[in-house]
């Protein structure tokens, strides 16, 4: 028996919205400790990693580990039928399920929707994310990071991110010209202004803005985002989801030929 009930179903809707342009089909692994998912995009330059802890669910039960192979597009179609205030319950009784049941219930418990999504058998890539001590960690407003990426992507396809002890600089060079936005360390009480820099070693790395803009679809999951960088390692962009877990995106840096 597997059952997971989310009090705020809208979070699950937001997660699926945030990853659906990046990955088409995924294996979600359910275990006693919660749900996890890892998948690379088709170009194999980005990786999505989702972890949802059992404690974050209203009810959670998973008697034995199971793998749920899902089409994200089809999952998204079913989740469109859930209201933003609904609870969402995932359920299956089978050991090797061929479908996953969904129950959506509104706050008054006056409307209950039930769907089943056919599952797919997907080759699971055995991906492992190496433990990395990032030499530059930036925590800032997710909306602000999203705005910077969106603005700069009209000038260039790539952005160079350079850290120093005091600031982080986002630079672009394009056919029409060049520019940069520098954000300084700021210990404001307001989330929207706060910028936390933990810089052991400054880094200078270049990334494709197209991917960063896709990651930023997760902006509504968290008011802050953390950018974790080390030379020659993929960038790790993390959105923490309150008590529930985290959604992480990894992106390979652009390298000079």
């Amino acid at each position: 028996m597997f059952e997971a009930k989310l009090q705020q179903g809208v979070i699950f809707k937001k997660i699926v919205d945030a990853i659906k342009d990046l990955v088409k089909s995924v294996n979600i692994d359910a275990s006693t400790s919660g749900l996890s998912m890892q998948a690379m995009d088709s170009a194999h330059v980005a990786l999505v990693s989702l972890k949802l802890n059992e404690n974050g669910f209203k009810d959670y039960r998973c008697d034995r580990p199971i793998t749920l192979g899902l089409s994200i597009e089809n999952l998204s179609k079913i989740l469109k039928c859930a209201g933003n205030d609904d609870t969402i319950t995932l359920q299956t009784d089978e050991e090797e399920p061929s479908s996953l049941k969904f129950f959506f219930e509104n706050q008054q418990a006056s409307k209950i929707s039930e769907f089943s999504l056919n599952l797919m058998s997907l080759d699971s890539e055995s991906l492992g994310i190496p433990d990395t001590d990032y030499s530059s960690v930036i925590q800032m407003s997710s909306a602000e990071f999203s705005r910077i990426c969106k603005e700069l992507s009209s000038i260039s396809e790539t952005v160079e991110i350079e850290t120093s002890k005091e600031s982080v600089k986002f630079s672009v060079q394009g056919d029409i010209g060049a520019g940069s936005i520098t954000v300084k360390n700021n210990q404001s009480d307001k989330d929207v202004d706060r910028v936390d820099l933990q810089i052991d070693q400054p880094v200078k790395l270049t990334f494709a803005l197209r991917y960063l803009n896709m990651f930023n679809k997760a902006v509504s999951l968290s008011s802050t985002v953390s950018l974790n960088m080390s030379e020659e390692n993929p960038l790790m962009v993390e959105y923490k989801i309150d008590d529930l877990g985290s959604l992480r995106f990894y992106l390979a840096p652009k390298i000079s030929d």
Binding site: M40, H44, V45, E125, S126, L127, G128, A252, P253, I255
Partner: peptide
């Protein structure tokens, strides 16, 4: 000119 590294090997090397 810049290129993007395929990350398959990186993430497979546990």
């Amino acid at each position: 000119q810049m290129s993007q590294k395929n990350m398959t090997d990186y993430f497979k090397a546990k």
